[in-house]
Design a protein around this nucleic acid. Structure first.
Lengths: 192, 192, 192, 192
DNA sequence: ACCTGCGGGACTACCCGTTGCT
DNA sequence: AGCAACGGGTAGTCCCGCAGGT
C-alpha cells in the first residue's frame, strides 16, 4: 500500500502552490482538483473541513518549507549580513522567475482569508511567528541580546514582506533591493 | 437630476470600503449593492467595465485619500521622526479600531487581484508610487539627497506595509510598533 | 406596477406540481428549473429564500387551489353526503389518473420537510387549517352545531388524508372508497 | 463471528429510526453510518442493494415492531373501544415525546420514496396490510362479520394515519384526539 | 436618455450514493 | 470488512446584460 497517502499530499502540494500565487478566494476547488489531477470526491475524504481546512494545512506546509529554506540559508551563511542578502536574493529569484506571481506564500491568504477564518488566520500567524523565531534565534546566536534579536527579527521580517508586496505589485525588484540594502546597513551597524 | 453623481459616488465609497477590508475576490457584487443600498442594474451603467473597473476606481479613491492623509501628517509634523511616528500611530489606530480588519487599503486587492487584472494592478502600483513620491519629496525637503530620499522612502513604505501585514495577521500591534521604533532610529541617525 | 413577466408564476406552478408528486427532498432545484424552463439565476431573484421559500409558497398555492376546488364542490352539492362523495371521487380521479402519484398536495412535503423548516411546516399547517375551516363552515351551515362541525370536519379531513395515503401506497383506490362509505354513513346518521 | 449480525442489526435500527423521523431522501448515508457508528464501507457488505435495500428492510422492521405493539394492545384490551383508545394514546405519546417528529414510521417513506422504488413501496404496502390484518382479525373475533371487519379496519387505519399526519403537521394532538373520539363512537355503535 | 428590474447561466463549495483494491 | 477513491449531484452565488419603464 504505497499510494495511500500520496493523493492527500499531492492535493496539499497543489493547494499550497495555488493559494500561494492566487490567494484563497481566487482559487476554486475545481481548479485545485484539476491542477492536481485528483478526483473530486476524494477531497472531502482527506479534508473533511473542506476548502478552509485545505487552506490552513497548505499554509502550514508553505510556511514550513519556507522556514526550512530560511534556516538552511542562515546556517550556511558566514555572517548575518550575507545571510540576509542571500535570503532576499532567493526571494527575488522566486518572484522574478514566476513572473511576479509568487511573493510571500502566506501574505495573500493572510489578507484575503484571515478575516473570515480563524483556523487560516492562526496558520498564517503561526507561520510568521516561526519565521520570526528562526531569525531571532539566529541573531541572538550572533552576539545580540535576546531583546534586540527579537526586535530586529521583526523589522527584518516586516521589511522583507513589505518589499515583496511592493515588488510584486510594481513588477519590479527595486523595492526589494532597496530593502536589502537598508537591512544590510542596519545589520552592519549592529555588528560593528 | 442631482442624484446621478451621488449614486455613483456611493457605490465607489462602498466599494473602497469593502475591497479594503475583504479584498477583491471575497467581495461580491451583491454585497456591494446591498451594502450601498444601490439598485443592482445600475452598476453597469455607472461602471461599464464591471467589477474590475469598480475595483480599479475604488483603489484609486483609497490611495488618494490615504495619500492626502499622509501629506497632511507630514505637513503638520515638526520633524521627520515625529512625522513617521504619527503616521504609524494613525495606521495602528485604524487597524485596532476596525478589529484588525483594515490594514493597508491597497495590499489585499494588490495581492489577490493584481495578477489577473492589469488595470487593478496599475491602480495599486500607482497608489504605492504616489505615496512613495509624497514620502520622498518630504524627505528631500528635509536636507536629504534625492537619491537617499527615494531609497529611504521605499524602505519606510515597505517596512510599514510589512508591519501592517504582520500586525493584522497576528492581531497584535507589536510588529507595527517595532517597525516604528526602527524607523524612528533610522531617521534619527539620518538627520543627526 | 403591471406584471412584467409570468416567470415567477410559472416557477411556482412547476414547483407546486413537483413538490406535490415527489415531496421536498426528492425534488431537485435542477429539475425545478429545467421543468419550468427557467434559468437558475432567476429563481433566486424571485425567491431569495431559495428552495425553502419556493416550497412554502408552492404549498400555499396548492392548498389554495385545492381549497377552492373543495369549496366549489360543497357549494354545488345538494347535501352533505353528496358533497363528501363528490370530494372523495375527485381525489380518487386525481390519484388514479396520475398513476397514483398525486395524493394530497401537502402531505408529502409536510412529512419530509416540516421537521426541518418552520416556514414550510406553517404553510402546510395553514393549508390543512383552511380546508378544515371550509368543511366546518359548510357543516355548520347544514344545521350542525359549531362544535360538532369542527369535530366532524377534522374527522372527515383525517379520514380522507389517511385514505389517500393508503390508496397511494397500495396503488389501489379501495381504502379511499372504504373511507368514503364510512363518511357517507357517518353523515347520513348525523343528518337523520 | 457473532458481531456480524450485530453490526447489520445496528445499521438497521439506526436506519429505521432515521427513516421514520426524516423520510428517505432527507436521510443521507453519511448520517446513517455516523449515527450508527458503523464504517461506511461495510454498508454495502451487509446491504448490497444500497440505500434502497436498507430502507426496504428498515420499513419491514418498523412495521413488524409497530404491528407487534398493536397486537399486544389489542390482546390486553377488555373490549374494542378500549383497544382503539389505547392504540391512539400510545401513538399520541410517541408523537409528543419526540417533539412531533415520530408519527407513522411508514408514512413519510411511503410518500417520498414509494414512487421511485418498487421494493420500498411494496414494503410499505405490506406493512399497512399487516396492520390491517391484525385489526381486521381482532374485529372479526369480536362478533363482527369478516366483511365488516375488513371495512372497519381500513377506516380505523386511515383515520389514525390521517390523524397522525394532521397532528404532526400542526404540532397539536387535537386532530388525533378528535379521530379517537370518532372511532370510539363508531365502535360503540357497532357493538351495541 | 437615464436608469434599473429582471433575467441568464456558468460556476461555487460541498456532499451524495457507490465501488474497487487491500 | 473497510479505506480510499470517484464523479456526478446538491443548493446556492457569481458577475453580467438587456429590454423597456420613467
Amino acid at each position: 500500500m504505497v499510494r495511500r497517502t500520496d493523493t492527500r499530499q499531492r492535493m496539499l502540494d497543489t493547494a499550497a502552490d495555488l493559494f500561494h500565487s492566487q490567494g484563497y478566494h481566487a482559487t476554486g476547488l475545481t481548479q485545485l482538483i484539476t491542477a492536481g489531477g485528483a478526483p473530486k470526491g476524494s477531497l472531502y475524504f482527506h479534508f473533511p473541513g473542506g476548502k478552509e481546512q485545505l487552506a490552513a494545512e497548505a499554509v502550514r506546509l508553505s510556511s514550513e518549507r519556507t522556514g526550512a529554506l530560511l534556516e538552511a540559508i542562515l546556517r550556511d551563511a558566514p555572517d548575518a549580513v550575507t545571510a540576509i542578502d542571500r535570503t532576499v536574493e532567493a526571494l527575488a529569484s522566486f518572484l522574478s522567475e514566476s513572473d511576479f506571481q509568487r511573493g510571500c506564500p502566506l501574505a495573500t491568504v493572510a489578507l484575503d482569508a484571515a478575516a473570515e477564518s480563524e483556523p487560516i488566520r492562526e496558520a498564517c500567524a503561526a507561520g510568521y511567528s516561526s519565521w520570526h523565531e528562526v531569525l531571532a534565534a539566529y541573531l541572538s546566536g550572533q552576539q545580540l541580546s535576546v531583546e534586540r534579536s527579537d526586535e530586529l527579527a521583526t523589522v527584518v521580517l516586516a521589511a522583507i514582506e513589505g518589499g515583496l508586496l511592493l515588488a510584486r505589485t510594481r513588477r519590479d525588484l527595486a523595492p526589494l533591493r532597496a530593502v536589502a540594502t537598508h537591512l544590510h546597513a542596519t545589520l552592519d551597524r549592529e555588528f560593528s
